[in-house]
């Protein structure tokens, strides 16, 4: 695998009021890998990727995305950077007053103003086809199922052809079969669009299926990073319940 780093995080701290969420996070994302971030609910996984796209500012530490420090660049440069980073929200965050087609067009026509109507339609259909939902193109988000919403959300980020994808709990709240489909989709996206991805999840099946590498967020830090087996081959009381819940039941 290519060892070029697309995301480099060093000594990242973030707190809300008196509550320290991230306490010295170090993390690298290499080119063309899928990194799975595991962690209990409320450990700051979403906060971490929101910092990566500049939705939140770090209190301390260096966050370098595609060679740029996200908290040091101007707003304009940040927008340019965000074009290259796709962000799939935990709750899909589809624009619920717009149809699926308008949802997908929204970022595209605002970032590439010289596209013709035909080119826009073509791009919309291409990504919608990639997530297997071409038939929903004229539906409203409220008419879609949870899994379909996730896919449309992913399609909406793919339409800008990002180099990096950040998935916030793509399988949360879905049935096991839909989870498998989403896992396949994540792998397909990586193959087809040559992205590097961070996948946040607490679903180990998903982690095993898509992750080249696993990092576990414990008490505001990544104490355990490595392959799936390296991370879980431990007696750490904070890690074992994860494994036991998912595979022994």
């Amino acid at each position: 695998m290519d060892q070029e780093k697309v995301i480099e995080i060093k000594g990242l701290y973030k707190s809300f009021g008196t509550y320290d969420v991230l306490k010295g996070v170090d993390l690298d994302l290499h080119k063309r890998e899928n990194l799975v971030v595991l962690g209990k609910s409320g450990t700051g996984k979403s906060v971490l990727i929101k910092i990566i796209v500049g939705l939140l500012t770090p209190d301390q530490g260096a966050v370098k995305v595609l060679g740029q420090m996200v908290d040091k660049i101007s707003y304009k440069e940040l927008l340019a950077l965000r074009l290259k980073v796709g962000f799939s929200f935990q709750n899909s965050a589809l624009y619920d007053s717009m149809t699926v087609r308008q949802n997908l067009e929204f970022p595209l026509v605002r970032n590439q103003r010289n596209l013709t109507k035909g080119e826009v339609n073509q791009a919309v259909e291409r990504v919608l086809d990639a997530v297997g939902l071409l038939q929903t193109i004229n539906q409203m988000p409220s008419e879609l199922s949870g899994g379909q919403r996730k896919r449309v959300g992913i399609a909406r980020t793919l339409i800008l052809q990002p180099e990096v994808m950040l998935y916030d709990e793509p399988t949360a709240g879905l049935d096991p079969i839909t989870c498998l489909e989403i896992n396949n989709l994540i792998n397909e996206v990586q193959e087809r669009f040559h992205t590097s991805s961070i996948v946040i999840t607490h679903d180990l099946t998903c982690a095993k299926a898509v992750g080249n590498r696993v990092a576990m967020l414990l008490d505001g830090k990544f104490e355990r990073q490595g392959t799936f087996d390296e991370v879980f081959n431990t007696d750490d009381e904070r890690v074992k319940p994860f494994y036991e819940y998912n595979f022994i039941q």
Binding site: K50, V53, L55, L79, A80, R82, L83, V85, F87, F89, Q90, N91, A93, L94, Y95, D96, S97, F106, P107, R110, N111, R156, T157, L160
Partner: peptide, 25 residues
């Protein structure tokens, strides 16, 4: 209510991260 629910369901953040300007829109 409309903007509030867009904020709460992260639709405004979604516009932000797709490099569009939600304030303007």
């Amino acid at each position: 209510a409309e903007l509030g629910s867009m904020r709460v369901t992260e639709q405004i953040d979604a516009m932000e991260v797709s490099a569009t300007n939600p304030f303007k829109f």
